[in-house]
Simulated assay, not measured.
Amino acid sequence: MASLLYLGVRPELDAATAERASFRIALGVDDDRLDRVDLTTTRLPEDAFERYAGFVIGGSPYNVTDVRKSETQQRVEADLERIAARALDGGTTAFFTCFGIGVVTRLLGGAVTTDHPEEAAAAEIRTTAEGADDPLFGPAGPVFQAFTAHKEGSVAVPPGAVLLAGNEACPVQAYRAGADLYATQFHPEPSPRDFADRMVFYRTTGYFDPEAFHTVQEAILASVVSEPARILHRFGERALARHSAGGR
C-alpha cells in the first residue's frame, strides 16, 4: 500500500516527533502510511522517490538567509532541493512548509530576505484569484486563519510559480510550482493545542517575546484554525490517488 514520507528538519527531535503526529492527523492517514526520516540525522534514502507517493516537509529553526550554516544544515538544504527538483519535474508530489518554502524559492531563482517576519500567532491569510482555482486552496475560501512563526520570507512569488495566498505582513504565504510542488510559509498541520505545545521548544529563540509566553500561548489556544489542515488533507488524498493511478 502506498504511503507518504514526513521529513523532519528540526534538530529538536522531540519537536519533530510531535510535528509528525500533527501531520499524520491533518493528512488523515493511518500511522503506517506516514513514514518518517529526520534529515538532521539521516540522509534522504536513495530509493525514496520509488518508495513514497509524496513528501511533506516540516518546519525548522534553520533559515535560508543564515550567514553561517553548519554541515548539517547544508546537507538538509541539499536533500530538500533534490525533492523540490523531482516534484518540479513531475516525478513526485511534495508539500514544503515554513523553512522549506525558502529553500524552494531560492531553487526557483527567487529572493528570500528577513523583511517579512511574523511572530507566533494565528494570522489572517487571503487566497488569490489563482488560489481560488487551485484544487487544494480553492475550498479554503477567500480568507482563513493559519499559524505563523518565521524570521524570513520570500520577497515575491519566484519565477515559474503561481501565488496562491498571502497577507500584508508576508505577501508570499503559499504558492504552487508546476502541478505537484506546493510550498507554504504558514504551518498547515498543527491544531491550536499542537502549536501551543510547540512554543515550549522555541521559547527563547526569537519567535515571540519570552516574557509574554503565557499570553501568546493563551491567544493561540483561543484561536480557530481549521482550513490549513484541510488543505494538507487534500494534498494527501491527491498524492495517494496520483500514485494509485500510476502518476510516477
Rank of each mutant, 00 (worst) to 15 (best):
M1I: 07
A2I: 03
L5M: 08
Y6D: 01
G8A: 15
V9C: 12
R10Q: 14
P11W: 00
E12V: 15
E12C: 07
D14T: 15
R24K: 06
L27E: 01
G28S: 03
V29P: 03
D35A: 15
D35Y: 04
R36T: 11
L39H: 01
T40L: 11
T41V: 15
P45H: 00
A48F: 00
F49C: 05
E50D: 13
R51A: 14
A53D: 00
F55T: 00
F55G: 00
I57S: 06
V64Q: 03
V64P: 00
D66P: 11
R68L: 15
K69F: 07
Q73K: 10
Q74V: 14
Q74L: 15
R75T: 14
D79F: 08
R82V: 14
I83G: 04
A87F: 07
G91F: 07
G91Y: 05
T92C: 14
T92I: 07
T93N: 03
A94N: 07
F96N: 02
F99I: 08
F99T: 06
L107V: 07
G109E: 03
A111D: 13
D115I: 11
E119C: 10
E119W: 06
A121V: 10
A123D: 09
E124T: 15
I125P: 06
R126I: 04
T128G: 12
T128E: 05
A129K: 07
E130Q: 14
E130A: 15
E130C: 06
A132Q: 13
A132C: 08
D134P: 09
D134A: 02
P135A: 08
L136P: 05
F137G: 03
G141A: 07
P142Y: 05
P142G: 13
V143R: 11
A149F: 13
K151F: 14
G153I: 12
G153C: 13
G153D: 11
V157W: 01
P158Q: 02
P158D: 04
P159H: 06
A161W: 00
A161M: 03
A161K: 00
L164M: 04
A165I: 02
G166M: 01
G166P: 08
N167M: 02
C170R: 06
P171F: 06
V172W: 03
A174V: 09
Y175A: 01
Y175T: 05
Y175C: 04
Y175S: 04
G178Y: 05
D180L: 13
L181G: 01
A183P: 06
A183D: 05
F186R: 04
P188R: 03
P188K: 04
E189Y: 10
E189R: 09
S191T: 15
S191M: 09
S191F: 11
P192W: 04
R193L: 14
D194H: 06
F201H: 14
Y202E: 11
T204E: 13
T205S: 05
G206V: 14
D209M: 13
D209H: 09
P210N: 04
A212I: 08
A212E: 12
F213S: 10
T215S: 13
V216C: 08
A219L: 14
L221K: 01
V225S: 02
V225N: 01
V225R: 01
S226F: 00
E227Y: 01
P228A: 01
R230P: 00
I231F: 02
R234Q: 01
G236S: 10
E237L: 15
E237T: 13
A239H: 10
R242M: 05
H243E: 10
S244C: 02
S244E: 12
A245G: 08
G247M: 09
G247Q: 12
G247F: 08
G247L: 15
